[in-house]
C-alpha cells in the first residue's frame, strides 16, 4: 500500500526533496528495512542512508525506532537528529 514519506533535516538536504509517495515491497516491514531499501536506490539515497543509526523516524506523527514497524501507516518521516530551541 502506498504511503507518504516525508524528509526533514539533513535527510531532506541530502536528497534534495521534501518527500515522495512510495510503495515498498512486502518484505520491507520496519524502519530499518525501509532505510535499507531506500539506500539500495544508490546515489544520494545511498549516501544519506549509509548510517541507519543516525536516522530518526516518525510513524503517523509518533517517534519510532529502527526496529519499529510502519505497517498500515499513512505517513512516515525520516530525518536527522532534531535541533529545537
Amino acid at each position: 500500500m502506498p504511503i507518504d514519506l516525508h524528509y526533514f533535516g539533513d535527510v531532506r538536504e541530502g536528497l534534495g526533496r521534501d518527500g515522495e509517495r512510495i510503495d515498498p515491497p512486502s518484505h520491507v516491514l520496519t524502519i530499518a528495512d525501509l532505510v535499507g531499501w531506500l539506500a539500495d536506490r544508490g546515489d544520494s539515497y545511498a549516501q544519506v542512508f549509509a548510517e541507519p543509526r543516525r536516522i530518526r523516524a516518525a510513524v503517523d506523527l509518533e517517534h519510532a525506532g529502527l526496529a519499529d514497524s510502519f505497517f498500515g501507516a499513512r505517513e512516515v518521516a525520516l530525518f536527522s537528529e532534531t535541533r529545537a530551541l
Binding site: 533535516g9 538536504e13 518521516a77 532534531t82 535541533r83 529545537a84 530551541l85
Partner: peptide, 14 residues
C-alpha cells in the same frame, strides 16, 4: 518542558 522540547520536538536548523 524545555529539555523535552530539545530532545523530542521535530525542528531543524539549517
Amino acid at each position: 518542558v524545555t529539555g523535552q522540547i530539545r530532545a523530542r520536538a521535530p525542528f531543524w536548523r539549517r
